[in-house]
């Protein structure tokens, strides 16, 4: 009985997969993917070569400080079109009249953008390899850093996707996405302006607080729960927003 249920769920997974592949291919067709990959490599490379030998420590700490900043601009740029473009072009009507659930559309698009970020992070391993050759590197923070980056990107993408679901204008989607991500990013950096009793709450909401904790190489469930719940909540809102046509 149970196996049958799993088999029944398979077509849904294949819908998500179909949308995932289409979106990923469209990133590469439109050169967005290459631009993102090059931007990552260039910025990280510059940060690196300009300061690594000054500090003279074999770690990727600097990279993990810079990439979250790069995310702030790159992620809204790759998520802005995901739903806004379909709404503008009217293709959303084709998609939503096919036999598939709204959440499958959102999931497929989310994973495609996430995969793109993962692929863009992949070449930065070159820096890891270089440094591992040059000095004695502590692998814990590197692993934690990469996991943290992926989780952080996941949250940003979910937020950006939600922004894209709100409008049919890609520029609006970009700006709304950027603002929301920036808010998450700044949260734990404005603590001095926050009344004392709220500090721990606001700090917990800040994405960088959790990221730096993971990037130290300590993978704490509280941090993972934070990332997954913000991510899940944003995707949930995207699905709701996509269903607004039915209101």
């Amino acid at each position: 009985m149970k196996i049958e249920n799993y088999i029944k769920a398979l077509p849904s997974l294949s819908n998500t997969g179909t949308i995932f592949r289409k979106e990923l291919r469209s990133y590469f067709n439109s050169a967005v993917a290459y631009v993102v990959i090059v931007v990552f490599l260039a910025i990280v490379g510059w940060v690196y070569t300009s300061s690594m030998f000054l500090i003279n420590v074999a770690s990727l700490r600097l990279m993990f400080e810079w990439i979250p900043l790069v995310f702030l601009f790159v992620v809204p740029a790759i998520t802005m079109r995901l739903l806004a473009e379909e709404k503008k072009a009217g293709t959303i009507e084709l998609l939503t009249t096919k036999p598939l659930h709204d959440w499958e559309i959102v999931a497929g698009k989310f994973f495609a953008a996430w995969m793109l970020i993962a692929l863009a992070l992949l070449p930065t391993l070159i820096y890891y390899i270089t440094i591992a050759f040059l000095g004695d590197i502590d692998n814990g923070p590197v692993l934690g850093g990469y996991i943290g980056l992926l989780l952080m990107a996941g949250v940003y993408i979910a937020v950006g996707l939600m922004a894209s679901s709100l409008t049919e204008n890609q520029i609006v989607a970009f700006i709304v996405g950027l603002l929301l991500m920036f808010a998450l990013f700044l949260m734990d950096k404005v603590l001095i302006f926050i009344p004392e009793f709220m500090i721990s709450v606001v700090e917990y909401l800040g994405i960088d607080f959790h990221f730096s904790s993971i990037a130290r190489g300590v993978i704490d469930t509280r941090d993972v729960v934070y990332f997954l719940s913000v991510l899940g909540f944003s995707l949930y809102l995207s699905v709701i927003s996509l269903g607004r046509r039915k209101w």
Partner: peptide
């Protein structure tokens, strides 16, 4: 149902074959 919406919206960056295959797969 097979549906052709008003203004015939299409994914302009896909080629015809990819597009048809995409639609077909979404229909299972």
């Amino acid at each position: 149902i097979g549906y052709l919406p008003e203004m015939n919206p299409l994914y302009l960056d896909m080629n015809v074959l990819e597009y048809l295959e995409y639609s077909a797969r979404l229909h299972g």
